[in-house]
């Protein structure tokens, strides 16, 4: 991995990254909720060139029934990439990566949801990657959490995820695809910002213990920045809904 760093410069003389960002700068991010009519909750997120659509269905009846849990809802997550979301066309069949990511996304979201309120049912979280440019599992978790809130599912906290890592010997936040591929380390962190709990951590690459702790702090900082955008997206949506409702009242 580190050998390739010599060939491709990921950080230039001015200390800027390939997409012009500073090392501790996250990509331009926009989030919206309530974007799909049929879903109980939904969201759309753009983080740099990442474009993610999430739908939440449930709590609803679970099929096949034998999977139902007697004391809580079953959380089912699917991470899925569209065939044209990457440089090369992807096979439409689910890859082993997709299956692992579905599992870790579930593991990241589960601590925040009051599943025990809905025994015998399912809550389905569908993460659709429309375009990917690195960090789609994080973007998927961040978007899924506001889609769950939009579905009115009781939660302990939002969940927000961000990656950080090391490229060209420097610590950077919110890695794009090139930095993820050619960098020295990639650390994915998801947190519940109010509860101060870590709900996902994954890493590959090479870091000393001290470096790990520094990169972790950077990822956490990215998480809090994204958390503010999450809150703004939810507030904006419900302010609009409130206005519509009050206008309806007047017209009556």
């Amino acid at each position: 991995m580190s050998e390739e760093c010599g060939e491709v410069k990921l950080i230039d003389e001015q200390g800027l990254r390939t997409d012009g960002r500073k090392p501790d700068e996250i990509r331009k991010t926009i989030m919206k909720v309530g974007v799909l009519k049929n879903a109980d909750g939904s969201s759309y997120l753009e983080q740099g060139r990442n474009k993610i659509l999430v739908a939440v269905y449930g709590p609803e009846e679970l099929h096949p029934k034998h999977l139902a849990l007697p004391d809580k809802a079953l959380l089912q997550c699917r991470y899925h990439m569209l065939t044209f979301s990457t440089d090369e066309r992807r096979s439409p069949a689910p890859s082993r990566r997709d299956i692992e990511l579905s599992k870790v996304i579930k593991s990241a979201l589960e601590p925040a949801i009051l599943l025990e309120k809905f025994p015998m049912t399912t809550i389905r979280v569908l993460v659709e990657v429309i375009q990917s440019d690195g960090g789609t599992r994080c973007a998927g978790i961040t978007a899924a959490s506001i889609a769950l809130a939009n579905a009115g599912i009781p939660m302990r906290d939002l969940v927000v995820a961000c990656a950080a890592g090391k490229v060209d010997g420097q610590y950077i936040v919110d890695l794009n695809a090139d930095e993820d591929k050619l960098g020295e380390a990639d650390l994915v962190v998801a947190i519940m910002p109010q509860r101060k709990l870590v709900t996902l951590i994954q890493m590959d690459g090479s870091l000393t213990l001290d470096e790990f702790k520094k990169v972790f702090e950077l990822a956490k900082k990215g998480c809090y920045e994204l958390y503010n955008i999450q809150r703004k997206a939810l507030l904006e949506h419900y302010e609009k809904v409130a206005k519509e409702v009050s206008q309806d009242d007047i017209s009556k």
């Binding site: 599992k103 870790v104 593991s107 990241a108 589960e110 601590p111 925040a112 650390l187 947190i191 519940m192 509860r195 709990l197 870590v198 709900t199 996902l200 951590i201 994954q202 890493m203 590959d204 690459g205 090479s206 870091l207 000393t208 213990l209 790990f212």
Partner: peptide, 12 residues
């Protein structure tokens, strides 16, 4: 050095 980390399980 750490070369890989994975979290699993239903909690935080």
């Amino acid at each position: 050095k750490i070369c890989a980390i994975q979290k699993g399980g239903p909690g935080g």
